[in-house]
Simulated assay, not measured.
Amino acid sequence: MKLLFVADPLAGFKIHKDSTFAMMREAARRGHVLYACEANDLSWRRGGRVEAHVRHITLTGASGYGVKDWFKVEDETRVALAEFDAVLMRQDPPFDSEYFYATHLLGRAEAEGARVFNSPQALRDHPEKLAILEFPEFITPTLVTRNAADIRTFHDEQKDIILKPLDGMGGMGIFRVKEDGLNLGSIIETLNRDGAQTVMVQKYLPAISAGDKRVLVIGGKPVPYSLARIPQGSEIRGNLAAGGKGVAQPLTARDREIAETIGPKLAARGLLLIGLDVIGDQLTEINVTSPTCFQEITDQAGFDVAAMFVDALENALPG
């Protein structure tokens, strides 16, 4: 098969932990042909199809921390996306205007016959912070609002809260306010910007000390191990980008209940791969853009996540 990865610049990949690289490596091992482009390589012209300036790449076999020469560009060309067996949208967040426009181009390509994973429509329909609102039975007390007074009322009720922007990633812009309310006003001003920006507020979960678990769901089925991202020192965020320590561990019964409820529903909407964030027994986010943690789970638990993903991708394609 010919696979096109729409991703961030390949030269910036940290291949010792990058999940897209793990997908590429497993796909190449099976004999699939790899192509790559960036979202800014996508284009459409009247009378034509959505196409991209793509690079046909092969893997050199290099691996390890800091390696840059892990791929070789065999040739470059402009190709309609419908000519590929599958297009994998793996650009990292944020989900900004340009990402949004890219999903529309990818959606047009779908109408022309391209097979895109995750589905562009599903990417738009499931913003990573707000997607949890569909599953209130699994989430902690949560408020989504632009109203500063509502946030103060929620704090009065819950005493210990987390505030975060809807467009944050990697733990960016997350604040904790304890019962004393210290700096609550300043934090609201920073995130809410006088009512211009919507804020998510959640009850603080002490179970974060044991880790913010990433539960991967592929083709509607959970990977049997999560990666608990454990905050270090005085940090409240477990995100690996914020210095958290990743520890692979078997799914709990609650993890599996959440994954087996949500996974099939979202898979049916075109979300081949999702990442559920679970603290304790509460769902906090549903990641759909470019979920990670493949290599950490494989390295520590011995379960080949990339193989499970490519199996699901192959099964999702005709023939």
Score class of each variant (00 low, 15 high):
6 V>C: 06
8 D>L: 04
9 P>W: 04
9 P>L: 15
10 L>E: 09
12 G>K: 11
15 I>T: 03
20 T>G: 08
27 A>H: 04
28 A>M: 01
35 Y>L: 01
41 D>V: 12
45 R>C: 14
53 H>D: 11
64 G>L: 09
73 V>A: 02
78 R>Q: 15
84 F>L: 11
85 D>G: 15
95 F>H: 11
96 D>W: 05
96 D>L: 08
100 F>H: 07
107 G>H: 01
111 A>T: 14
115 R>W: 00
120 P>Y: 02
129 K>L: 10
135 F>G: 15
137 E>T: 13
141 P>L: 15
147 N>E: 15
152 R>Y: 08
152 R>P: 02
155 H>N: 10
156 D>M: 06
158 Q>E: 13
158 Q>W: 03
166 L>V: 10
172 M>I: 06
172 M>T: 03
174 I>K: 02
176 R>W: 01
180 D>E: 14
189 E>M: 11
189 E>D: 15
190 T>Y: 01
193 R>V: 14
194 D>T: 13
195 G>E: 07
196 A>Y: 03
199 V>C: 06
205 L>C: 14
205 L>M: 09
221 K>G: 06
223 V>K: 03
228 A>I: 15
228 A>M: 09
242 A>P: 04
243 G>R: 01
244 G>K: 03
245 K>R: 12
245 K>L: 04
246 G>R: 09
248 A>G: 13
250 P>Y: 13
251 L>F: 12
252 T>V: 11
254 R>S: 13
254 R>V: 15
254 R>H: 07
259 A>I: 04
259 A>S: 06
260 E>T: 13
263 G>R: 08
266 L>Q: 03
269 R>S: 01
270 G>A: 03
273 L>P: 06
273 L>G: 03
276 L>D: 04
277 D>L: 13
278 V>C: 08
280 G>N: 06
286 I>P: 00
293 C>A: 15
294 F>E: 00
295 Q>A: 08
299 D>M: 03
300 Q>V: 04
303 F>P: 11
314 E>Q: 08
316 A>L: 01
